[in-house]
Amino acid sequence: MNFTSELRDSYAEVTADGRLNMVAAPQLREFIGNLITDGSPRIVLNLEKTSFMDSSGLGALIGCLKAARQAGGDLRIAGVTPQVRMVLQLTSMDKVLAPYATVEEAFSND
């Protein structure tokens, strides 16, 4: 799994490319944690290149959401693939971490 970030006007966009599984989950937590520590607690995670997510990946998303909110920000997800959407729906986590169609829409109403 490869993570990249780009700072936007009011948030950081993180792109996750690959499989978000038990191997990649700790990497995502560390990557997002570093962004928050560096002063970017408003984050949009772009998942359009994420081909697979398991329960470890879901746990990492929730951990990152909690960390961002504790820092006074938020974590939002965008570009969700069908497999990732299915995991979110089966666990009802799409109610907690609502997916946005595009990165730009994620913080557009704030």
Rank of each mutant, 00 (worst) to 15 (best):
I62K: 02
P82W: 03
I77Y: 12
L90P: 08
Y100L: 12
G72M: 08
P41F: 06
G39I: 00
K95P: 00
Y100T: 03
L61R: 00
G72C: 11
L75F: 01
G73P: 11
L65E: 01
M93Y: 05
S55M: 06
T81I: 00
F52N: 05
A98E: 15
L90V: 15
A101Y: 02
K66S: 04
T50L: 11
A101T: 14
L97F: 06
T81C: 05
S55Y: 06
G59D: 05
G59Y: 09
S56N: 02
P82Y: 05
V87R: 01
T81Y: 04
M93I: 14
S56T: 04
G73K: 06
K95S: 13
D74W: 00
Q70C: 12
V84N: 11
A71W: 07
P82A: 03
V44N: 04
A68D: 04
S92A: 13
G72N: 07
S92M: 14
A68C: 15
I77H: 09
P82V: 05
E48C: 12
T91E: 10
A101V: 11
A68E: 03
D94N: 15
V80F: 11
A67T: 03
S40I: 00
L58N: 05
T102M: 06
Q83F: 11
R69I: 01
A101D: 15
V44K: 02
K66Q: 11
G59W: 11
D38V: 00
S51L: 14
I62H: 00
S56L: 11
S56H: 03
L45H: 08
T102I: 03
V44R: 01
P99W: 06
V80Q: 08
P41G: 07
L65F: 05
V103W: 05
M86V: 06
Q70L: 15
